[in-house]
Simulated scan of single mutants.
Amino acid sequence: MGEAVMTTRRQADGAIVVDVRGTLDAATVDALREALLSTLHAQRPVTMIVDLTFVTFMDSMGVGALVTGYNVARETGTRFVLRNPSEFVHRQLRVTGLAEMFGLPASHDSPQHYTP
C-alpha cells in the first residue's frame, strides 16, 4: 500500500487548495476524503482546488474519494476543480467516464500537462 501527504492552503483569491502527493489507494483515501469533507464543511470555500501534480498512482478508491468530494462540494455550493492530473490519473478518470464531470479535457495531450 502507498503513502500520501495532503496539505491545505488558501490562495489570495480565497480558493482552498488541497495539494496531494503520493498514491491514492486503500491505505490513503480515508485521509483524502476526510481532508476534503472537513474543509468543505468547516470553511465552505467558493472554490476548492485539488492539485494532483504529484499523485503517482490512483486506484478506484482514489477515484471514489474525488467523486465524494465533488458531490459534497456541489451540495455546499463550492466549485470543485482538479488541477494538473498526471497522465496516469487523467487516464483513470477517462476510463471511468469521469474526466468530463471534473471538467478535464477528453485527452491529456496538452504540452503543459504531459511530458513523455
Rank of each mutant, 00 (worst) to 15 (best):
E3T: 14
E3F: 15
A4P: 10
A4I: 09
V5W: 12
V5A: 15
M6C: 11
T7P: 03
T8K: 10
T8N: 02
T8G: 06
R10N: 07
R10H: 08
Q11N: 12
A12W: 12
A12T: 15
D13Q: 11
D13M: 13
I16E: 01
I16S: 01
V17P: 13
V17R: 05
V18A: 13
V18F: 01
V20R: 06
L24H: 08
L24T: 08
L24K: 05
L24F: 07
L24V: 02
D25I: 04
A26R: 13
A26I: 10
A26M: 12
A26H: 15
A27K: 04
A27S: 11
A27L: 07
A27N: 11
T28E: 04
V29S: 03
D30I: 08
D30Q: 13
D30F: 06
A31M: 00
A31G: 06
R33I: 05
E34Q: 11
A35Y: 07
A35E: 08
L36V: 13
L40E: 02
H41T: 03
A42Q: 10
Q43N: 07
P45K: 02
P45V: 13
V46W: 01
T47S: 04
T47M: 00
T47D: 00
M48T: 06
M48R: 06
I49A: 03
V50S: 00
V50K: 01
D51R: 10
L52T: 10
L52W: 03
T53I: 07
T53H: 09
T53S: 06
T53F: 07
F54P: 07
F54V: 09
F54Y: 13
T56D: 15
T56S: 15
M58D: 07
M58K: 10
D59Q: 04
D59G: 06
S60N: 13
S60L: 15
S60K: 14
S60M: 13
M61I: 05
M61E: 13
G62E: 03
V63Q: 12
G64P: 12
A65I: 04
L66G: 05
L66K: 09
L66P: 02
G69A: 15
Y70E: 02
Y70R: 09
N71L: 04
N71I: 00
V72K: 07
A73I: 12
A73T: 10
R74S: 09
R74P: 12
E75S: 14
G77W: 08
T78C: 14
T78S: 12
F80W: 05
L82N: 08
R83G: 02
N84H: 12
N84E: 14
N84R: 14
P85F: 05
P85R: 09
E87K: 03
H90V: 02
R91C: 02
L93M: 02
V95F: 05
V95A: 07
G97H: 03
A99T: 05
E100K: 08
E100H: 08
E100T: 11
M101R: 05
G103Y: 04
P105S: 05
P105Y: 05
A106K: 07
S107C: 00
S107T: 14
H108I: 02
D109E: 10
D109H: 09
S110H: 14
S110E: 15
P111V: 03
H113Q: 11
H113W: 11
Y114D: 01
Y114V: 01
P116C: 09
